[in-house]
Simulated assay, not measured.
Amino acid sequence: MTIDFNKNNDGLVPAIIQDASTKNVLMLGYMNAEAYQKTKDTKLVTFFSRTKNRLWTKGEESGNVLHLVDIKLDCDNDTLLITVHPKGPTCHTGTDTCWAETNATNYGFISHLEEVIEDRRLNFKPNESYVSSLFAKGINKIAQKVGEEAVEVVIEAKDNDDNLFLNESADLLFHYLMLLQAKGFKINDVVNILKEREK
Results as ranks from 00 to 15, higher is better:
residue 18 Q to P: 05
residue 29 G to F: 06
residue 96 D to Q: 00
residue 60 E to K: 01
residue 116 V to W: 01
residue 48 F to S: 03
residue 13 V to Y: 06
residue 134 L to P: 04
residue 95 T to M: 07
residue 176 Y to R: 00
residue 186 K to F: 12
residue 35 A to T: 00
residue 106 N to V: 08
residue 39 T to P: 02
residue 14 P to E: 05
residue 169 S to H: 08
residue 9 N to P: 03
residue 170 A to C: 08
residue 4 D to S: 13
residue 92 H to K: 09
residue 100 A to D: 13
residue 7 K to E: 09
residue 148 E to L: 11
residue 147 G to T: 10
residue 43 K to G: 00
residue 129 S to I: 04
residue 37 Q to W: 06
residue 65 V to N: 04
residue 153 V to Q: 03
residue 10 D to I: 05
residue 72 K to C: 04
residue 69 V to H: 12
residue 106 N to Q: 04
residue 39 T to V: 06
residue 167 N to D: 15
residue 84 V to D: 04
residue 75 C to G: 10
residue 34 E to V: 01
residue 58 K to D: 00
residue 59 G to P: 05
residue 27 M to H: 01
residue 54 R to S: 13
residue 169 S to K: 05
residue 103 N to D: 13
residue 8 N to S: 13
residue 151 V to F: 09
residue 137 K to R: 14
residue 142 I to Q: 03
residue 95 T to L: 01
residue 8 N to H: 15
residue 48 F to I: 03
residue 95 T to S: 15
residue 47 F to C: 12
residue 123 N to S: 08
residue 74 D to Q: 08
residue 130 Y to R: 03
residue 147 G to L: 12
residue 21 S to K: 07
residue 151 V to H: 06
residue 22 T to L: 13
residue 126 P to V: 01
residue 4 D to M: 02
residue 107 Y to P: 01
residue 159 D to S: 13
residue 82 I to W: 11
residue 2 T to I: 11
